[in-house]
């Protein structure tokens, strides 16, 4: 492996960019491919498929054998709202292996005491997401019920293509949210990506159970995300 490529690979991974380290198993030559970099022919098709599936493996192309090591950014969850559900969700999501960030400008909610050991930011999502933008490997969970806080990150998540977007609220609340997001220029198909009412329908009856429902919903979105050719 080329030492320069090892540095480049680590730099790309630290910046949460999807990359493939491609090695020709015949002569040992290697390179790092970013998602979206043009790669021609059969190898290009295999590279595109590997970015979608996230699975590393050997491919035969152009009469040669290549190993594709796929590095997708680890999934993380951004929670808007430092509410009771978020307290349970932050703990459970970390146990399940997700990085979690909780954002809430209301300093009465966003306290160290309520979120010990959690990455908590007591600021407006508009400001936080400027410095720490959403990406396709992020799940956005909006649970404040307050349009002033929830709407901006929901709209940003739709534009970014977050792998999961969920919003808390009754059907009535969500109907008004749909109107506001439509007014912001989002199409019906796009808005339909929002999981609302949030979480899998498991009859969750309290904040901790709702957190289970949300986390299960996120895991399903992550593991069953549609691949090209699935017609989705």
């Amino acid at each position: 492996m080329d030492p320069y490529l090892l540095r480049k690979l680590n730099r790309e991974r630290a910046a949460r960019r999807a990359v493939i380290h491609l090695t020709d198993l015949g002569d040992g030559r290697d390179r790092v491919i970013r998602e979206g970099d043009p790669v021609a022919g059969d190898l290009g098709a295999a590279v595109a498929a590997a970015f979608r599936s996230g699975r590393s493996g050997i491919v035969a192309a152009e009469g040669r054998e290549f190993f594709l090591n796929v590095h997708l950014p680890p999934a993380r969850i951004v929670v808007i709202g430092a509410v009771h559900i978020s307290q349970a969700l932050a703990v459970m999501a970390r146990t399940a292996g997700f990085d979690v960030t909780v954002i809430d400008p209301r300093t009465a909610f966003a306290t160290e005491e309520r979120f010990a050991g959690v990455d908590l930011v007591a600021d407006w999502p508009e400001d936080v997401l400027k410095a720490r933008p959403l990406d396709a490997y992020t799940a956005l969970v909006a649970v404040t019920h307050d349009p002033k806080i929830d709407d901006f990150p929901l709209s940003a998540a739709l534009k970014t293509g977050c792998f999961y977007i969920g919003a808390l609220g009754s059907r009535k609340t969500h109907a008004r949210r749909v109107e506001r997001l439509t007014a912001l220029g989002h199409g019906a198909d796009e808005i339909a990506r929002i999981s609302a009412p949030i979480g899998l329908d498991i009859g969750a009856a309290n904040p901790a159970e709702i957190a289970v429902a949300i986390l299960a919903d996120i895991v399903r979105a992550l593991r069953r995300r549609p691949l090209a050719g699935d017609g989705a």
């Binding site: 090695t23 493996g57 050997i58």
Partner: peptide, 17 residues
Amino acid sequence: ALATVVETWGSAPRPAG
């Protein structure tokens, strides 16, 4: 040296990569 699992069959303990 860097060792990398490039292929697995059956119930291999660590995945490719």
